[in-house]
């Protein structure tokens, strides 16, 4: 069903995806962003597979020769490393009405761009990279920007769900080493 062409066997950043796949992936990510922007967290959480890992690793400033150490490994510091159970827990908390860092809730708008698709290791799954620019406004005049890249694995979903994919893995790499925000309670 899905055809994704790699034009050369060398390490090229160029990924050519058939129009239909590209289109479907993009519309899926936009739909996901819409659920979050519109506070539809209970529907959003269903977009994740039960075996998902949702991970925001720590990041530090390193010289070029140590750049491979810039983004933390999984046994190092992270901002979030959740499975489905705890990701669900965050949704439960944020919608509880007593979660004071999101009650009253922040307003957020997600811009998802630079969507690149290629086949994943497992047949049928897709490796999808996207860039995001998330603006959050909170209370009277507080504002934050969260900018970074997502590394998603998308798995075909039951069409009855209304969505073509589920997210089977998400790694989020932020551009900031020191998070210039008092809290990261906005889902990325």
């Amino acid at each position: 069903m899905t055809t994704v062409d790699q034009p050369t066997p060398v390490l090229s950043a160029f990924r050519n995806t058939d129009l239909q796949t590209q289109h479907t992936v993009e519309q899926f990510l936009y739909a996901e962003a819409e659920l979050l922007d519109d506070y539809r967290f209970d529907e959003w959480i269903d977009l994740f597979t039960d075996d998902v890992t949702y991970w925001i690793p720590n990041r530090e400033t390193r010289p070029i020769r140590e750049r491979h150490l810039e983004v933390a490994a999984q046994d190092e510091a992270a901002i979030i490393l959740d499975d489905k159970f705890f990701l669900k827990g965050r949704v439960r908390r944020i919608t509880s009405g007593i979660s004071w860092s999101e009650e009253p809730p922040s307003r957020a708008r997600r811009l998802i761009t630079n969507i690149r698709v290629q086949p994943a290791a497992k047949p049928g799954e897709l490796d999808v990279r996207s860039n995001f620019y998330v603006y959050r406004s909170r209370l009277e005049r507080h504002q934050d920007w969260f900018v970074g890249q997502r590394f998603d694995v998308l798995r075909p979903a039951d069409p009855a769900s209304g969505y073509p994919f589920q997210i089977a893995n998400r790694k989020i790499v932020l551009e900031q080493t020191t998070i210039l925000a008092p809290s990261l309670t906005t889902f990325l």
Partner: peptide, 16 residues
């Protein structure tokens, strides 16, 4: 990380 970090489900309330 889950409880006390910039995304910690406890810590974020303190900063607020």
């Amino acid at each position: 990380q889950r409880t006390f970090s910039p995304a910690g489900v406890f810590e974020t309330d303190d900063g607020e």
